[in-house]
Amino acid sequence: MLAAQLILDQGIHVEGINFYTGFCVEGHTHAIRKKDRNKAKRNDALWVAEQLGIKLHIIDVIEEYKAVLLNPKHGYGANMNPCLDCKCFMVKKAQEWMAENDFDFIITGEVLGQRPMSQRRDTMQIVVRDTDPHERLLRPLCAQRLTETVPETEGWVDRKRLLGLTGRSRKPQIKLAENYGFNDYSQPAGGCCFLTDKAYSSKLIDMWTARNDRNYELDDIMLLKVGRHLRPKPHFKLIVGREEGENRFLEGYRKQFTYLRPTSHAGALALLDGTAQNKDEIELAARLCARFSQGKQAAIVSIAVKELGKEEYTLDVSPLKANDIPEDWYL
């Protein structure tokens, strides 16, 4: 936001690009979880664009991003976040967009040394080396500490009016934002996607391990954001809604999964991802589903089971007790 404003201040036409990988944090979570529904339902990128008075283009890169996540040349960060490859990928996509739409250079809001991995001088140079042979990637917030780029040498932008911010403190940016009158200035201090989240990453790894295949579809990665995930057997797991919003979201998947829901007591819908191989395994799933219903203390809970391609039937089961559920079932 600040980087764009610095360039706008120089009378340069700026438009925003926002890439949607499927792992982006905002958007989905508030749409899914009812408790988050009262929060402002804004898309931050759109909000920023509107504050700046610039156009914003949101680009779906779900398919292309798979290659970045599955085979990152520079490896992963603390979790499954391939930040460096991700940045290279996004800069490359931005360059394509720049060429197609007759723009002259790209700006990003990075600050030298702000993030431990992806904003060190050497890693920022890697992004340049891997993506920017024509030196058209400008970082206005720290440009004065980096090698000059074409927009500066050509005099399209005045380097003196760019900044030389460094370090982890975000105070200078907050001050700058105040000077500009951006009163609701909020930039994520951590990651901008679920891949930086430990719990999410371990669910992703579990899914790949269980399927023995690292490919994924958008539905797969969306479902990892929702509900409790428990894996009682290597070949199946249950996804249990934690509240009404999640249940509604999971209901949208009833045609694709075997699902279970309590009928004698109030309780959540559970999707069975994978295959239960026999009646005992279905019963185990039903007992788990009962555990997360309001009948968890009852002797018997009726669970409606709808296996894919079969008629719905009811199982009367005794709910699993808390200590019947090994810790490592929880993903």
Partner: peptide, 16 residues
């Protein structure tokens, strides 16, 4: 069906 669209689509339309 996503309530977020009620906010995001008009915001996108305004800026374009």
């Amino acid at each position: 069906s996503d309530p977020g669209a009620l906010h995001d689509i008009p915001a996108w339309c305004r800026i374009h």
